[in-house]
């Protein structure tokens, strides 16, 4: 097992490097120059400009600049935000926990909805419950997150006035503060979680249907095991294997949804940091946040691979 995890890690690192190459090439190909403002500034003599360019290595060939950049990133030197005048890594570390908290709890919610609904629907295919679940799942993943977010605000904040629609992060402690924190997270987590639950329900249902017809399930039933035991211990464990992969493949979409949700509810996470830096032309932050998102996606893929090995031990011996 540990060998398998190590092997997966060896696959994850090249793909992370590949992503960093893609990001860097995109940045290098883009028109515009970080020193374009200097070039138009008459107070900066051309010699100083040339010296600055040489100092920051802007005239080096692209592979040298890439090596330079990637070693700096690996050393934790992520640059300096043009706008807020702090190091990029402190800025990101400040905001990352909020994003992970919202994304994590919405994934949890999605699993809590999708697994029971998908399993129950698969045990009674084409029943009324199954058809209802299917229809709702279909509607659920066709509704873009920004529209559900707006609908939720409209219903729960404007009409019913139950929940706040702006996320605040005042530090504090005690039970009332905790309740307030939970209350304001309900809507974003619901929006993201329901969107995820919709596609997950379909995955779970079709994976269960594939397994439930296999002979070993019939054998388990013939031995006289109860329905619940057959479903949970025999069918579900094997049905979850493809579901894990599909969920891992969904991770980029999850983080995309998180950006939108953070923007709607004004959650101070890295998604809204990305948007505000783009609007403020803050290139170092944009690069770093995009790279952090890439790292998160790769990390979750790695976790999925490890889970995969645990669910299906045959894989780790290949």
């Amino acid at each position: 097992m540990s060998q398998y995890i190590l092997r997966r890690l060896m696959i994850a690192i090249p793909s992370l490097l590949g992503i960093s190459v893609v990001l860097f090439v995109v940045l290098a190909l883009a028109p515009g120059d970080p020193f374009s403002e200097l070039a138009t500034n008459p107070n900066v003599p051309p010699e100083v400009q040339a010296a600055l360019r040489a100092k920051f290595g802007l005239d080096d060939p692209i592979y040298l600049r890439y090596l330079h950049w990637i070693t700096a990133m690996a050393h934790g030197d992520w640059g300096f935000s043009f706008v807020s005048r702090v190091d990029v890594d402190t800025l990101i570390l400040q905001r990352l926990p909020t994003t992970l908290y919202v994304v994590g709890s919405s994934q949890l919610l999605a699993l809590l909805i999708a697994i029971p609904v998908g399993v129950y629907a698969a045990t009674r295919p084409y029943s009324l419950f199954d058809q209802l679940a299917n229809t709702f799942a279909f509607i659920g993943f066709s509704l873009p997150t920004f529209f559900t977010g707006i609908l939720f605000i409209l219903v729960f904040s404007v009409k019913l006035d139950w929940l706040p629609f702006v996320y605040t992060s005042v530090p504090g402690s005690g039970i009332p503060w905790l309740l307030e924190m939970i209350r304001q997270a309900i809507m974003p987590v619901m929006v993201l979680g329901l969107f995820q639950a919709a596609s997950m329900t379909r995955f779970v249902r079709s994976a269960m249907l594939d397994v439930i017809r296999l002979d070993y399930v019939t054998t388990a039933r013939a031995k006289g095991l109860g329905q619940a035991k057959v479903i949970v211990k025999h069918v579900m464990r094997n049905a979850m294997i493809p579901v894990v992969t599909l969920i891992a493949l969904q991770m980029p979409a999850v983080f995309g949804g998180a950006i939108v949700t953070e923007q709607i509810f004004r959650i101070p996470g890295i998604g809204s940091l990305l948007i505000s830096s783009i609007l403020a032309n803050d290139t170092p932050v944009v690069m770093a946040v995009t790279f952090v998102f890439a790292c998160l996606v790769v990390l979750f893929n790695l976790i999925a691979d490890v889970l995969y090995g645990w669910l299906d031990p045959r894989i780790s011996f290949r």
């Binding site: 992503i19 990001l23 515009g32 980029p252 995309g256 990305l274 783009i278 995009t290 998160l296 996606v297």
Partner: peptide
């Protein structure tokens, strides 16, 4: 293909638009 599948789509989309918009 696998590399592109694990790219974070929306952030990359936003970054590309941000970088190439003006040109």
């Amino acid at each position: 293909t696998d590399l592109f599948l694990s790219l974070p789509q929306l952030p990359l989309l936003l970054m590309l638009i941000y970088l190439f918009r003006d040109g």
